[in-house]
Simulated scan of single mutants.
Amino acid sequence: MSAAEYKILIVDDHAHNLYTLRTLIEKHLAAEVLEAASGREAIDLSLEHRDIDLIILDVQMPEMDGFQTASMLKLRKRTRDVPIIFLTAAFKSEEFQQRGFAVGAVDYLLKPIDDNLLINKISTYFRLISKERSLNRELERLVAERTAELEQARQYLQNILTHMGEALLVLTPEGIIKTANPAACRMLDYAEADLIGLAIGDVFEEEGDAEAGAFMGTWLEALIRTGALAKIDARFIAQDGRRVSILFSRTAVKDSDGRISDIICIAKDMTGYVRIDPDDEHANPKETEQP
């Protein structure tokens, strides 16, 4: 036979039965065979070998019979999904067969063993196991591809946020800073870790609003209605107290229920620019850089 592709645990308290089963399986199937002479030994081997694919279990054994052994194996996470084929010469009634299925057996075969039937049964489970392995490999491949795509997209967005010239702040609906990009940290002279957790009112002044709570209330009302607010003249308050003139806009991000989950704030540094009064007939109404 070719190299072993599967691992079978055979359990029987008679050495002759173990030898017969091993010989039969190794003759017809590419499988590694583990032997246990008792239920306790079977449980110990299942703990030692994490990759058992199938268990062939004799029902009539002293101390711990096959039903008890199967029940113990099904209680353990590592072996609860391993198929169990019961073999028995004594417990032939339908009552015992039902008991075997109740404790997790997938098949209940009677001795003397029909060699062809047993090999066909084992081969069927091997085919199912092989199919499951193929599906798992395909799933792992798809997950790996999707993970790589998401990481690539995350890195792409991170590069945009890192290199954009405008300051970006992401706030909770209550106005607490969740995220800040490097431009915002530079404008405010804060490390990102120090900005996170501050209220927007700690670093922001809007003309005409004396208190942060007041304009947050106005913000939320407007954001709930429209989802965005137009650019406004405002000021960042740097860590050292300096006021940095900015052009500021806010956009609400809503969840599937229509509730605001985040507020995105973008600010352009207007230092060095002055706004020309549009009523001044001698001035260009556009923003003009100071000489």
Rank of each mutant, 00 (worst) to 15 (best):
M1T: 11
A3K: 08
V11C: 04
A15L: 08
A15C: 03
N17Y: 04
L21V: 05
R22W: 02
L24Q: 12
E26D: 09
H28E: 15
L29E: 05
A30Q: 12
A36Y: 01
A36P: 03
S38Y: 01
R40T: 12
S46D: 00
D51P: 04
I52V: 09
L54T: 02
V59Q: 07
E63F: 02
D65G: 06
L75V: 02
V82G: 00
F86K: 00
K92T: 15
K92N: 14
F96E: 05
Q97R: 13
R99G: 05
R99L: 14
R99T: 07
V106Q: 12
D107M: 07
L109M: 15
N116D: 15
Y125V: 04
F126C: 14
R133L: 05
N136Q: 14
E138T: 11
E138S: 14
T147M: 06
A148Y: 12
Q152D: 10
A153M: 05
A153T: 10
L157G: 03
T162A: 11
H163G: 03
H163T: 14
H163F: 14
L168W: 07
L168G: 14
L169H: 15
L169M: 11
V170F: 06
A180M: 10
A183K: 10
C185S: 05
R186V: 12
A191P: 05
E192N: 09
L198W: 08
L198P: 06
D209Q: 13
G213R: 07
F215K: 03
G217S: 13
W219G: 03
T226S: 11
I232S: 11
I232Q: 15
F236P: 02
Q239V: 03
D240W: 03
D240F: 03
D240E: 10
G241R: 10
R242F: 04
R243W: 05
V244T: 08
S249Y: 00
S249V: 02
R250Y: 02
A252I: 03
V253W: 11
V253D: 07
S256W: 04
S256F: 04
S256L: 08
G258K: 04
I260W: 06
S261Y: 03
S261T: 10
A267S: 14
M270A: 09
T271M: 08
V274E: 07
R275V: 14
I276M: 09
P278C: 00
P278Q: 11
